[in-house]
Every structure is written in C-alpha cells, then in structure tokens.
C-alpha cells in the first residue's frame, strides 16, 4: 500500500516540475526585460519597475496566488456580467499557478540580472557599438555569456526557492506532489509518512539541480577563460 501511495504522489512530480520549469522560463524572460528597464534612462520606467518589484516582493506568495486564482476571475466576471457581454472567464489552476509564480519570481530575477548587467564593463558594449554590431548581436555574443556567469549564483538561488514555492498551487486544487501527499496522508491517517515522501521529492529536485547548475557554472567559467586567451 505504501509503495502505491508513494508512486501516486511521485507521479505528480511531473506536474510539479512542468510548473516549475514553465515559471522559470517566464520569470527569466520577464526578469531580463525588467532588469533592462531598471537600467534605462527613462526615469518613469525605473520608478514603475521599482514599484512593481517592491509590491510583488512585499506580498506573500500565498496571498498573491489566492488573489489571482480566486479573486481576480470573480472580479472580472462581475465586471463582465455588469457590462452584459455574456462572457465569463475561468483560470485553469495550472496556468494561474505558473503565471503567478513566474511573475512573482520575475521580480527576484530582475534584481539578480540587474546586478549582473551592472557588472559587465560598459566599455565592452561601447566598443561593440563602435564596430557597428546590431544590438541583438551585442546581447547574444557579449552580454548574455557574461551575464550567465555573473547571474548564475543568484539564479540558482531563485530556482531553488521557486521549486519549493510550487507547493502553493496545491491550494488551487492542482494535483501536484503536495496535493497528492495531503490526500494520501488523510486517506491513511499517516501524515508523517507521506509528507516525508513529498519532502524527499523536493529535496531530490534541489539536489539534482544544485549539481546540474554547479556543473554549468564550471563550464561557463572555462569557456569564458578560453575566450579570453
């Protein structure tokens, strides 16, 4: 019985990982855009992003999650009903969870990327511009390789926190590892056993990604040195 319940819980790991990876992609892309925005010369844009980061980082993830999934559709639907359009929106728990996590962590990612970007000497970019390189090419060939190396420690940290934060989606009724663990715990009356299974899963993901990212860091270090000689 234990093996069956445990495999039911671990089978939900696919969903947890998909959610985490989706949120990672979203938060990285959005975080990079926000980081560039923060470094722009437009004062209003900087202020806007600062406010966004402040608000997002100042509200618990759980509160944001519940607001987006339960309150936002209700508010939109009230508006739609009032306007008499006959439409009605519904957020799927998977997308609501992924987008919310992605947006929350984009604030953290933008801070990580911003300090990474600031550590790339401006002279390199100016030199590239002087050679007439296209901004995209400057980004791909000069900025990104260095940013990857500089931002990796912070990026790793954000990823580890985010994997664990995915457990919050169980409150939206999404059948992730945590949701299944609770179901098994209540069905059997053995909460410790099955929460430990869930704990083991998150730990294994953390362990695997720590090693993976360490290997990546070593690789980036080497290619960067190779590039310099």
């Amino acid at each position: 019985m234990f093996a069956d319940f445990a495999s039911t819980i671990l089978a939900a790991g696919v969903l947890t990982l998909l959610l985490a990876l989706g949120a990672l992609v979203l938060s990285s892309v959005l975080g990079l855009v926000l980081a560039y925005g923060r470094l722009s010369r437009r004062r209003w844009l900087v202020r806007l992003i600062q406010t966004f980061n402040f608000v997002i980082r100042g509200i618990p993830d759980l509160v944001l999650m519940l607001l987006v999934f339960y309150s936002l559709p209700a508010a939109i639907n009230q508006f739609l009903e009032w306007s008499g359009s006959g439409l009605w929106v519904e957020f799927s728990p998977f997308w609501a969870g992924m987008v919310t996590l992605g947006v929350i962590f984009s604030a953290y990612m933008s801070e990580t990327f911003k300090s990474g970007l600031q550590n790339i000497p401006r002279g390199q970019i100016e030199a590239a511009e002087a050679y007439g390189l296209h901004p995209w090419r400057i980004f791909w060939r000069i900025t990104l390789p260095q940013l990857a190396r500089l931002a990796l420690p912070g990026f790793t940290n954000n990823w580890l926190v985010m994997v664990k934060a995915t457990a919050l989606v169980s409150l939206l009724g999404l059948q992730d590892v945590m949701f299944r663990a609770k179901g098994a715990a209540e069905a059997t009356g053995q909460p410790f056993t099955y929460y430990l299974v869930a704990g083991g899963f998150y730990l294994a993901v953390t362990l695997a990604s720590t090693f993976g990212l360490l290997a990546l860091a070593r690789q980036l270090e080497q290619t960067n040195h190779a590039g310099r000689t």
């Binding site: 069956d4 609770k182 179901g183 209540e186 069905a187």
Partner: peptide, 17 residues
C-alpha cells in the same frame, strides 16, 4: 462536481489516486 477528498470514509483517494 468537486469534492475535497481528505475525509475518509466519505471521500478520499485510494492508493492509485
């Protein structure tokens, strides 16, 4: 139809979910 399957013997999950 939704149920909160955390309350045996009324509603819960079996070993296969």
């Amino acid at each position: 139809i939704a149920t909160d399957a955390t309350f045996p013997p009324f509603e819960s999950i079996d070993a296969n979910g």
